[in-house]
C-alpha cells in the first residue's frame, strides 16, 4: 500500500512573554518521514521554518531526558515518539504540565532541582572508609534491589503526569522519591533515617494517592508509583516500631 501521507500538521503551544501575554497555538505543516520522531519534526520547524520556536533537547536517544513535552495530551519524550503512531494528525504539542512555562515549550524545572537534594540522593555512610580499604563490593542481588530506580533520567514526565504535583506543587514528587529509594535500598547506604525526615513528613509520600500515572509514562520503567507505595509500607512499619521503642525519635 502506498503511503498517502506526505505532510503532517503540528499544532504547537507558543508563549512569548515579551510580545504576547497570552499563549497561543501555531500550526506548522511539516514533511512526514516514516522514521521521524516528534522531535525531528520540531527540529525541522526550527531549522527551516521558524528559528524562534523554543524547546529543550539534546541526545535524541532517550538518555538525556531533556525533550519531554506533552504530545496530544500525554507526557512523552519527543525523541522517542514516532509521528507514524500519531497520524493523521494534527499533532498537538504542549509544554510539560505542572511546571511554569518560561517560553514556548520550555518549562522551569527549578522546583525539582530544589527538591532533589532534599532527599539526599547519594550514598551516605555512617563512617567514611579510607581509600585504601578498597571497593565496597555488592552481589548482583544487592544491585538488583535498587537497579530499577537508578535508571531515572530526570526527564520530569512523571511530574507532568502527576495530578497531585500539578495541584499541590509542594509534593516532593515521584522521581525524587524513587531516587531516594534508589539509595535507601542500596546495601552500601546508611542514610535511610535521614531521608525519612523528608519523605515521611508533610508533602512527602503521603500526598500520593497512587494514581499510578507516573509509572505509566516513565520511559525507563522506573515505576516511581511502586517506589512510593513501598516507601509508605516502610515508613508505616517504622512508625509502629517507634511506638514500641519510645526512646527512638519517630
Amino acid at each position: 500500500m502506498e503511503n498517502a501521507v506526505d505532510t503532517v500538521t503540528l499544532k504547537v503551544f507558543r508563549y512569548r512573554p515579551e510580545t504576547a501575554p497570552e499563549p497561543e497555538y501555531e500550526t506548522f505543516e511539516v514533511p512526514y518521514q516514516e522514521d521521524w520522531m516528534v522531535l525531528d519534526a520540531l527540529n525541522h520547524v526550527k531549522d527551516e521554518m521558524d528559528g524562534s520556536l523554543s524547546y529543550r533537547w539534546s541526545c535524541r536517544m532517550g538518555v538525556c531526558g531533556s525533550c519531554g513535552m506533552t504530545v496530544n495530551g500525554e507526557p512523552v519524550l519527543t525523541c522517542a515518539t514516532y509521528i507514524e503512531d500519531l497520524l493523521p494528525g494534527p499533532i498537538r504539542i504542549d509544554p510539560l504540565r505542572g511546571f511554569p512555562v518560561i517560553r514556548d515549550l520550555v518549562g522551569d524545572l527549578g522546583d525539582f532541582m530544589a527538591k532533589l537534594p532534599r532527599v539526599k540522593p547519594w550514598i551516605i555512610r555512617k563512617e567514611e572508609e579510607p581509600l585504601d580499604a578498597g571497593e565496597t563490593l555488592q552481589t548482583p542481588e544487592e544491585v538488583g534491589a535498587f537497579r530499577q530506580y537508578s535508571m531515572c533520567i530526570n526527564c520530569m514526565l512523571c511530574y507532568a503526569a502527576c495530578p497531585i504535583y500539578e495541584m499541590e506543587p509542594d509534593f516532593i514528587g515521584p522521581a525524587a522519591i524513587a531516587l531516594a529509594q534508589r539509595y535507601n535500598l542500596d546495601s552500601r547506604d546508611h542514610g535511610a533515617d535521614e531521608r525519612m525526615d523528608v519523605l515521611s513528613r508533610k508533602h512527602g509520600v503521603w500526598d500520593c494517592t497512587f494514581v499510578g500515572e507516573c509509572s505509566v509514562v516513565c520511559p525507563k520503567d522506573v515505576d516511581p508509583a511502586g517506589a512510593i507505595q513501598r516507601y509508605k509500607v516502610t515508613a508505616t512499619m517504622d512508625w509502629f516500631r517507634s511506638l514500641l521503642r519510645p526512646g527512638r525519635s519517630g
Binding site: R16, E18, G51, S52, S54, R56, R103
Partner: peptide, 12 residues
Amino acid sequence: ALDDRSLTFNTE
C-alpha cells in the same frame, strides 16, 4: 539571521 529576538530562553 536569527528569527528569535527574544531575551527569554532564546535557544536560537
